[in-house]
Write a protein that binds this DNA or RNA. Structure first.
Lengths: 218, 218
DNA sequence: TCATTCTGTGAGCAGATGCTTACACTACGA
DNA sequence: TCGTAGTGTAAGCATCTGCTCACAGAATGA
C-alpha cells in the first residue's frame, strides 16, 4: 500500500523524456510465480521465508520485492495462480470429452488425481492467515469462484431449472467441495488407502450429485 | 526426545533420598493447556510464539518449557485437548436425549453450533505443519478417532449390519467430516450467510446419512 | 529448624526473518 | 556513443523467535 506496484512504472515510463530498456517485470513475475507458488504450497506461509523464495527462484530477495510490494502480495498472487492453474487443468480435461456429464467427468478426474499437484496446500496455508484482511479476501474470492465453477456443473448435471433447483445445486456444490477437501486431507495424512479414497470421492460424489432421487446404485 | 518429559521427575522423586514439595506440574499443565490451545487456535502454529503463549498464561516462557519439552509438544497437547473437549461437548449433547438418532442429533447440533468455540482452527494450523512427523502423526490419530466416532453414529443411524454396510458407513463418515470442514471454512471466510450454512449442513448431512437407498424424499 | 526440591523472575543468546540500501553493470533509445 | 533506466549482487538492519541460564524465594518432609 505504501509503494506503488512496480508494474506501473512500465506504463509511466512512456511519458518520461528519455527511456531505455522497457521493463520486463511482468514477464519476470510470470516466470517466478509458479516457483513462488510451489514454495508456499510446500512450506506454508510462515516457513516460506523470503530468503527461501529467493533461493528457489535463483534470484536475490531484492528482486522479489521489485515484483511484489511485500511477502503477503507474493502469497496472494500465488493463491490466484494456483486457482487459475486448476481451472485450466479442468478445462483441458473437459475439452477432451468423454462419457457422462461434465460434473461426473470432473468427479472421476478428481477421484484419480486429487492433490496431484500439491497446490491445495497453499489453501491450508491461507486458512492460517485469515486474520490478514487481504489474504482473507483473496481466499474468500477464490472459494466463491471455485464454488460457482462447481455449482454450474452441478446445475448442468442435474438438468433442473428453477429457483429451488438452483439453491439445491448451491448446497450440493459446497458439499462436493467439502468432499474434495476431506479427501485431500485424507491423502495428506495417509488416513485411507488410495482405493478407499477413490471410492469415497466417487461414491459420495455421485450420491451428492444424483441425490436421494438417484437410481440407488451400490 | 533429548530431554525426559518433566512429568517423569514426579515419579522419580519418590526414589530420591530426601524430598520436598511434591511437584504440581500435572496440575499446572491442566491449568494452562486450555489457554495454550486457545492461543494456537487463534494464531496458528507459527504466530503463536512462545512469548505470546507465556504472556497469555501469565507466566514466563521458562515455565512452559518445564511443562513441555518444546513448542511442538505444546501444540500436540493442545491438539489432543481440543479433540477431547469436542467429544465431551458432543457427549453432553447426546446425553440430554431428544428425537431422532444420535447421528441426526449431532448433525442438528453442529448445524447450529459449528465453529462455535473456534477450536477447529488448530486443525488448520496442524495441517500446515504436516512436514513434522510428530504433528502429522498426532493429526492423523485425531482424525482417525474423529472418523470412528462419526462412523459409529452413522452405523447406528442406518441400522444396517454386514460388511457392505460398514464400508458404506465408512465413506459416509468421511463425507460428513468433509461437510463439517467446508461449513467451518464457509463460516471462517463469511462465504454463506448463517441460514444458508445451516441449510447446507442439515440438508446435505441428511442426504449423506440417509443415502441413495433411502426413501427418495425431495 | 534445616536441607532439599519446586516455583517464579528476568535477562540473554544465537540464529532467523522481512525488508532495505548502496552500488556496479547492462541494455536500449536517441 | 552517450545517458537513462532496468537488472543483478551483496551486505546490512532492526526485530523477532525458540529456547536456556542463573538465581532468589517458597513450600515441604525430616
Amino acid at each position: 500500500m505504501s509503494r506503488p506496484l512496480p508494474v506501473l512504472s512500465s506504463s509511466l515510463s512512456h511519458t518520461r523524456t528519455r527511456m531505455a530498456r522497457p521493463n520486463q517485470l511482468h514477464e519476470k513475475r510470470s516466470e517466478l510465480l509458479p516457483i513462488v507458488a510451489k514454495a508456499f504450497a510446500e512450506l506454508g506461509y510462515r516457513r516460506a521465508t523470503t530468503a527461501e523464495l529467493a533461493e528457489r527462484c535463483g534470484v536475490q530477495q531484492n528482486i522479489l520485492y521489485r515484483l511484489w510490494p511485500d511477502k503477503r502480495a507474493m502469497f496472494i498472487a500465488a493463491l490466484g495462480y494456483v486457482f487459475d492453474l486448476a481451472v485450466e487443468i479442468w478445462s483441458r480435461v473437459l475439452a477432451k470429452g468423454g462419457p457422462g456429464t461434465t460434473a461426473a467427468r470432473l468427479l472421476a478426474y478428481e477421484s484419480e488425481n486429487i492433490g496431484k499437484f500439491g497446490n491445495h496446500r497453499i489453501i491450508f496455508a491461507g486458512l492460517n492467515e485469515t486474520d490478514d484482511p487481504e489474504i482473507r479476501a483473496a481466499l474468500a474470492g477464490m472459494y466463491s469462484r471455485y464454488h460457482r465453477f462447481v455449482r454450474d456443473h452441478v446445475v448442468d448435471h442435474r438438468g433442473k431449472r428453477g429457483k429451488a433447483a438452483a439453491e439445491e445445486a448451491d448446497l450440493i456444490a459446497w458439499a462436493i467441495i467439502g468432499l474434495g477437501t476431506v479427501t485431500t486431507i485424507s491423502k495428506e495424512l495417509g488416513l485411507q488407502d488410495p482405493s478407499a479414497r477413490r471410492m469415497t470421492m466417487h461414491s459420495m460424489g455421485s450420491l451428492l450429485l444424483d441425490g436421494s432421487a438417484g437410481t440407488g446404485r451400490t
